[in-house]
Design a protein around this nucleic acid. Structure first.
Lengths: 341, 341
DNA sequence: CTTTAGCATGAGATCGATTTCATAACGTCT
DNA sequence: AGACGTTATGAAATCGATCTCATGCTAAAG
């Protein structure tokens, strides 16, 4: 392999000068620069980034961990991350943790080993390895969270107003005449689930319908949504609307309804969350909350870079705008549907 | 940051001994080893992998590029990759190329800069940077392809028998009485598309129905499937079956059919490809070819590691088994459906 | 003509871990 | 007792690029 040494030798300059041509060309005289660049071309030299990293203590990489890479919501967020990272000159090291804390720790440890400059974690938990870094470096720790906002964690994050979004969904369902509404939640340990639940409960409380809420737990997967819906259909009082905390669970719910011969939206309204591509193509097209997925990713990178470049020393929490997207999976509830006729 | 120097000093040994404790403990006396390990614990030392990489010329990383990370098919393949890589002690650097050659080259160049030990590319093109490496190092070049098999490329790969699978689909459609079948292809430059098309054409040729084939091009996305179907519905002779080269395009086709009030499977049969999770939950559940997605990923890693560890010096092409999954989106074609009544 | 400022360049130290080679210490065998 | 092998350890070189500091040079200022 050709090194900077070979280049320097062939161009008849010192290593220092050769290196300068590549990193800070302004310092080198026109003629010398040209000569060196020619040699670089000719020898096909490419800098050994490992050696450069050792010297500069910068790797130009950021690690991103996702709970589930096959979840289309996260794919979109990652895409935003990649885009912003590349624009800022960083490469992305992606890790799929499968929601397993052990895997999260493993990836987080790469930050310790200085294999990357910073880390964005999209899951609900702050790995203990990171917590130690955070405890040591305070808000200069190059760690950012995406999607799941945990106040008081001392870590910057980018997310939507989950409680507010859930409130909106519930409010619109109540307005449509629904009373008995079921929620299909996410995993118990996720702040995001907790926030949406709080928002939904607040909406219920305002209408004095807290007692009418039904809860089932899922894990954001289609299959968990299907199962949750099945369980709900087996209850004595079947809900007239189901609000799932992910589009995939909503799609599972639609499948379960079809299977149980329950017509949507005539007999059952279904709402999802995220607005993944698929949402508009299912039957019926899904009413859902649109999250700015790519924007969440981009913003997370932005926050991280602020820290990396030393421009930020208080954790920032950025709340991005969401939007309720009305499609055909929601119909009138019994309170409205039955009175008029 | 604590370095091996600090550890050595605190333990009263040389750097060499301290390093040996961590990499080849067998060489160090029991007592010394214990002492060093204690110090490591106490100081919270973690090895600087950048420095280690510089010395050993191994990074312990592999790069994986995908044409589209939000495509659930690829997510699954990546999951297999991650799994196998981690088991073998490699970290995965993921790159989303968005089907743009420029981005592919960019990631491929990381191999040149020795930022990773090897590369798996899941797209249809061999980036020119890689081709140069391949030309130089021959079959020892640490490059593997997944999904898209291009014979004569001189690169190992893991994939299914795309032509065979397409043949099976067509054969079963013909057996069900279909005659006018449309294909919704993938991008023109993908070998995978070419192979499936060849398989489908062979099946048509055997029945003497080559002239009845209709072709539309898509890009594997839902939306492109919807558009292709719309175009097909606008033709004079509407096909009785549509075979899409991805499940997502098939789902788009189902949406288009619903929109045009064409009943599936009664009036139109639809077949997908891949068997992504969603396939069984749409209405009607999708007949499709199941690809062993995780297995393709795992196998690709295996092939790469064979090369990295110098055990392989001819490119290997591994063909993994697929399976036709019959669900409800396929019904009888006119030849069978109309005759009996 | 000397002094000073500024630019271009080179020598050499440095980043942190690994590894080769040499040496010391201790037994074992003749 | 001397020769030899084995085991544990350390000194120092090394990986390749970067960066500090020193130096030579030219041109402008006095």
């Amino acid at each position: 392999m050709t090194t900077i040494r070979d280049v320097a030798q062939a161009a008849g300059v010192s290593r220092a000068t050769a290196a300068r041509v590549l990193s800070d060309p302004g310092l080198v005289a026109e003629a010398t620069r040209k000569r060196v660049l020619e040699v670089v071309q000719q020898l096909g030299y490419t800098r050994n980034s490992v050696a450069a990293s050792l010297r500069t203590t910068r790797t130009g990489r950021i690690i991103v961990t996702v709970p589930d890479i096959s979840n289309p919501f996260f794919s979109r967020v990652i895409r935003g991350v990649e885009e912003a990272a590349q624009a800022a000159g960083y490469a992305v090291l992606l890790g799929d943790t499968r929601n397993e804390p052990a895997r999260e720790e493993q990836y987080a440890d790469m930050l310790n080993r200085r294999e990357a400059d910073g880390m964005i974690f999209l899951g609900p938990r702050l790995p203990s390895v990171l917590d130690r870094i955070r405890a040591r470096d305070g808000s200069r720790a190059p760690i950012v969270n995406g999607c799941e906002f945990t106040p008081g964690l001392g870590v910057s994050s980018a997310h939507i107003d989950n409680a507010g979004a859930a409130f909106e969904v519930m409010d619109s369902l109540y307005t449509m005449g629904h009373r008995d509404i079921a929620l299909v939640l996410g995993p118990a340990d996720s702040p995001l689930t907790r926030d949406r639940l709080l928002g939904a409960q607040r909406a219920a409380a305002i209408r004095g319908l807290t007692g009418h809420l039904m809860l089932e737990r899922g894990d954001f997967s289609i299959e968990s949504g299907r199962r949750a819906a099945q369980a709900l259909f087996a209850r004595d009082a079947r809900p007239s609307a189901i609000f799932c905390f992910s589009d995939e669970m909503a799609i599972g719910t639609l499948a379960a309804a079809r299977n149980a011969q329950i017509a949507c939206p005539a007999e059952l309204s279904v709402v999802g969350f995220d607005d993944i591509d698929m949402a508009r193509y299912v039957d019926p097209p899904l009413t859902t909350i649109r999250q700015p997925m790519a924007e969440i990713g981009r913003k997370a990178v932005e926050l991280l870079i602020e820290i990396l470049e030393g421009r930020q020393d208080v954790p920032l929490c950025v709340t991005l705008p969401h939007r309720l997207i009305i499609r055909q999976s929601v119909g009138k509830g019994p309170a409205i549907a039955e009175t008029p006729e």
